[in-house]
Amino acid sequence: MKLEPVNKNEVIRYLRYGNHTPDEIIMNMIDECEQILLRKITPAFTYKIFDKEILSDKTIKPGGTNIILSGNDIREHLDKCEKLLMICVTLTHETDRLIKITQVTDKTKALILDAVANAAIEQVCDKVCEEIYQKLPDYFQTSRFSPGYGDFPLTIQKNFLNILDAQKRIGVTINNENIMNPMKTVTAIVGLSKHQLPQKKRGCCCCKNNQTCEYRKAGNTCGY
């Protein structure tokens, strides 16, 4: 998997420019950071597909595993799906290291690299999913749903990585505070169904956390 050119508007959003356009110096730095990342980073990913098992209390479980996908939002998200795809995508340690080294010599560039990496990983997720979907021509898909969205708890991350064997497969680990390492890593669940799925609204407007969301207060979104 290779990185593709990054959506600059996303980068600018991550840098909290709002509707403003950065000046030429910063725009040039964004270009430069994009080139560095494209040249140096090979993303990695792993995934597994499970049958959707519904327990007596209506909670959902990936078949053959011991983890429960708790929360109403993930249940609604996977409504009408027969299978679920669990993926983990990472920009690898190389990205963290690059940002860290850059911080010593050029903190502005490090900040921009960080923003470019944030934009890049979303795009990589799109591409990875696209590749997987092509292998599953009989299935329709929901959008991606990540731990931390709505009432789907972050505390599931450890088990999530565990059943994907993410440490062995792509080197992703997690600490006691549920922070994944490498830092630019995303986990997500996609519902799969042989029948057309209803379009669901996405975004802050229909998130239950939109009044309390910490990302939103800081002018960002979690990606939901």
Binding site: L15, I25, I26, T108, I112
Partner: peptide, 14 residues
């Protein structure tokens, strides 16, 4: 005032 942004502030600081 919102006329410049974080990257520029850091550039100045550096």
């Amino acid at each position: 005032a919102g006329t410049t942004f974080l990257p520029q502030l850091i550039l100045s600081a550096e």
